[in-house]
Amino acid sequence: MAPVLQIEKIESGYGEVQVLWGISLEVEAGKLTTIVGANGAGKTTTLRTAMGSVRPWHGRIFLEGEEVTRLSAHAKAGRGLVLVPEGRQLFPTLSVEENLEMGGYSTRARKRQRANLERVYELFPRLKERRKQRSSTLSGGEQQMLAMGRGLMQEPVVLMIDELSLGLAPVLTQQLFLTLKSLRGQGITIVLVEQNVHLALALSDYTYVLAEGRVTIQGESRQVAQMDEVRRAYLGL
């Protein structure tokens, strides 16, 4: 089957500084793919370049078989490429519910906004309790829930999440992973950048390991978890 998101030899960076040196990823439909790597390896930059927040210098990007390399971030979002960004990036002066409404802004997400709002509130009852509150007054964990909820509101075709577990209680992280698995069951494709390599390898289907802006290891998560260099460098075994 053709990959739903395909990144081909992407190079990009900030100003004069090159960060990515020819990254290629193939994300299969209905799979959970993780990207792991040390701090500063370029994981966030990879997602931001895929999204269009950072312009690619070279290389190509395909979404559902169509080339979208030059499209702006909002145009890609309109086609269902969704990024839950690192650092949450909420709208601080908007209320919790207004933040979620913005998730339902695009034409494709708007149609199912009501149902999606129900689903998000079911998933995160705390957000429902605080729905009139400004998002800047939420606790760190609640903000992370809101960032996730806002992403789910977008009717993702591919849902890219940068640091899901950051600031969340372990119980909630587990719960979110289970949610992601059930979403995957509903046909949403998920790309996850995750610091918790144990969890990522255990729950995902496919793993890419990044180092210094390059893919160094890739494969079925089960197999990657067995590799000596991964066990030593990332699992502390």
């Binding site: 999204m51 979002a77 960004p85 709208f91 601080p92 908007l94 695009s106 977008q154």
Partner: peptide, 24 residues
């Protein structure tokens, strides 16, 4: 209104608004 909220969203965080599909 929806466009009114979009203006506030862009004002709050332009890059995030783009991620929502809003043409900033």
């Amino acid at each position: 209104t929806r466009p009114g909220k979009a203006i506030r969203a862009v004002s709050d965080h332009r890059e995030a608004a783009e991620l929502m599909g809003i043409s900033s």
